[in-house]
Amino acid sequence: MTQVEHDHNHNHAAPRSAPPILELINVHAAYGRIEVLRGVDLTVPRGAVLALLGANGAGKTTLLRVISGLMEPTEGDIHLGGMHVSGASPDALTRAGVTMVPEGRGVFPNLTVEENLWLGSYSGRHVDKILTEAYHRFPRLKERRRQLAGSLSGGEQQMLSLARALAADPALLLLDELSMGLAPLIVESLYDRVAEIAEQGVSILVVEQFASSALRVADYAAVMHGGRVVATGEPDEIESVLTELYFGGTA
């Protein structure tokens, strides 16, 4: 399996000597006795956007749960910026700079937009700063700040979820199925925001079942199948691998 090399042309790439933002070595995880991750090796370089693709049940979401601390790996090592973090709690990891936008809607429906963002301050940043930044990035949220998050449209909820995740000023952002249940146009505009965020130097690991929008913003891509990463490379190389995986042939 080829490791992803640092992209020296990337605007915000760290100096060569710095360790990658995320490095997974032989990570295993299981629900009860059902093993879902069977030795995942994956590296996300600092400042890069990596799209993690794969069919239903490949283990993508489980991998994100393990990285964000919601699930403990049964085996293997997770390094975050060179630090060994396997088994750390999700709240500690959030404060350490890994934030996740979970599958579905990562908002509290019975709290207002502003209260949702307020809770983002548990990551350690001041709430005023969070609000200014979020409303600047998503003016729509400012209009709706007194509304319950549950009454927002799907796209707006996803904006709020993104804004909250960015409130932590993350070094690594994990995005799980941003497109789920949203109209294609809204998905496109959300991914435009993701590209902007990446421009600012945030490393992003994005999981998508529908490859095209994720590949558009990605620097690299990896494909999961049967609990392992079976291919990594540039987005256009990966597209051919995907075709093979989805439409016959074996990986």
Partner: peptide
């Protein structure tokens, strides 16, 4: 904030942790 977090915890404890609480 802690009171707001208490109201939030009902909906989704995991998500609250992802918020850093």
């Amino acid at each position: 904030r802690i009171g707001t977090a208490m109201r939030a915890a009902v909906d989704n404890r995991e998500l609250l942790q992802l918020f850093g609480a």
